[in-house]
Simulated scan of single mutants.
Amino acid sequence: MEDVAAIGASIRRARKEVGITQGTLADLIGTSSRTVHAIETGTGNPSLVTVAAAANAVGLHLKATDA
């Protein structure tokens, strides 16, 4: 779960750096602000596609690695 929390924290930090709200990010990626909140806090069960869309919208890119 550390990875989930770290991804969410990175998305939140990047969102704040670009100066948009959770609601604006939600509108940009076609989801709800509740889902954006879940991504940023590492709670709930958002889809990988939605998490990747949120990351991309704030200028981040997810990279898969072998564990």
Rank of each mutant, 00 (worst) to 15 (best):
A9I: 03
I11Q: 01
G44L: 02
V58M: 05
A55M: 14
A52F: 02
I29H: 06
A14V: 09
I29F: 08
E17P: 03
G19E: 12
G44D: 07
T21G: 11
D27S: 13
D66T: 13
D27P: 03
A53C: 08
V4Y: 01
G59P: 09
V58A: 11
L62S: 15
I29C: 14
G8Q: 10
E2Y: 06
I7M: 13
N45P: 05
A52C: 09
A5F: 08
I11D: 11
V58S: 12
A9P: 13
R34I: 09
A55P: 05
A54R: 02
V18S: 06
V36R: 04
A53L: 13
V49K: 01
T21E: 10
A53W: 05
A6K: 15
A64D: 00
G59D: 12
A64S: 05
A26G: 02
D66G: 10
G42I: 11
T41A: 02
G42R: 02
G30Q: 09
D27G: 11
I20L: 11
H61V: 15
T31R: 06
I20P: 10
T24H: 09
T21D: 07
N56Y: 08
G8T: 04
G23F: 01
V4M: 04
G19F: 13
V58T: 07
V18R: 11
D66K: 12
S32A: 07
T65Y: 04
A64E: 14
S32M: 03
A54Q: 01
N56A: 13
V58W: 04
L28F: 04
V36W: 02
L60Y: 00
T35V: 09
E40Q: 04
G23I: 01
T24C: 01
E17V: 06
A55S: 09
D66M: 14
A55L: 14
V4R: 12
T65S: 15
T50I: 11
D66R: 15
I11W: 00
V4Q: 01
G30R: 07
M1G: 11
S10L: 01
R13Y: 03
H61D: 05
K16N: 09
E2T: 14
S33D: 07
A5E: 04
A6G: 10
T31P: 02
R34T: 13
L60W: 00
